[in-house]
Simulated scan of single mutants.
Amino acid sequence: MRDGIALDIGSGPGLLSVALADKSKLFIIALDADPAMSRIAKTTAAGSAGRVVPITGDVHCMPIRDGTVSLIVSRGSIYFWEDRARAFQEIERVLRPGGFAFVGGSFGTPALRDEIFTEMRRRNPNWDSDVARWSKRATPDVFRRELAASGVARARIREEEEGMWVEIKKDAISQHAR
């Protein structure tokens, strides 16, 4: 996806949103539940020619019209969603026909994971127990059960060495259905 509307769920300070804008012609909605993060994202997005718009909103009930988003991304926020089945329904609702969503988290490489964990342990003495708690609630089997409960038509789990992703695709409307 290089043009259309993209949605960055749990955008935080807007770094991924700005990177998407820099590499594409996408108009990016940077959605975060924390109003403070939306304010920070406005500053981050200042040089994006108005193509990154931070908004405050909840993944469980997004303030976005049905069938309007071409691409949805989220790196890391999925572990904090209270009702992932409901969030998956919302993702499918806002995707346009032919749209894709990639939500999950990964550290990329074992070396990068180790670097991040070393820094996070320095900042948060409870980092390892926090990660263990989050990981227990977000295994591939848990995600599969939540996807099944959501009723999302086309989804799969992609597992990587350093993380996993939920991929959701909304089928394009066939010419016969029009």
Results as ranks from 00 to 15, higher is better:
G12D: 00
P13K: 07
P13S: 12
P13A: 15
P13D: 13
G14C: 09
G14K: 01
L15R: 12
L15K: 12
L15W: 12
L15A: 14
L16E: 01
L16F: 15
S17V: 13
S17L: 11
V18A: 03
V18Q: 00
A19C: 11
A19F: 10
A19E: 14
A19V: 10
L20F: 09
A21G: 10
D22M: 05
D22A: 09
K23E: 13
K23R: 10
K23N: 08
K23M: 12
K23W: 05
S24G: 01
S24V: 07
S24I: 04
S24C: 01
S24F: 00
K25R: 09
K25V: 00
K25C: 04
K25N: 08
L26Q: 01
F27E: 03
I28V: 15
I28R: 01
I28T: 06
I29W: 10
A30I: 10
L31Y: 08
L31D: 03
L31A: 05
L31S: 04
D32A: 06
D32N: 04
A33N: 07
D34S: 06
D34P: 02
D34M: 01
P35K: 03
P35W: 03
P35L: 05
P35G: 05
P35N: 02
A36D: 10
A36E: 10
M37C: 12
S38Q: 06
S38W: 08
R39S: 14
I40H: 05
I40R: 00
I40A: 10
I40N: 04
A41S: 13
K42Y: 15
K42C: 15
K42S: 15
K42L: 15
T43N: 10
T43M: 12
T43C: 11
T44G: 05
T44V: 12
T44Y: 08
T44H: 07
T44C: 13
A46D: 12
A46R: 15
A46Q: 14
G47D: 15
G47N: 13
G47S: 15
A49D: 11
A49H: 13
G50D: 07
R51C: 07
R51T: 05
R51Y: 07
R51M: 09
R51P: 04
V52F: 08
V52K: 00
V52Q: 01
V53G: 02
V53N: 04
V53K: 00
V53P: 07
V53E: 02
V53H: 02
P54W: 01
P54H: 05
P54A: 09
P54L: 06
P54T: 07
I55Q: 01
I55P: 01
I55D: 04
I55S: 02
I55R: 02
T56D: 02
T56E: 01
T56V: 11
T56Q: 02
G57L: 08
G57T: 11
D58E: 07
D58V: 00
V59C: 14
H60V: 11
H60K: 08
C61H: 14
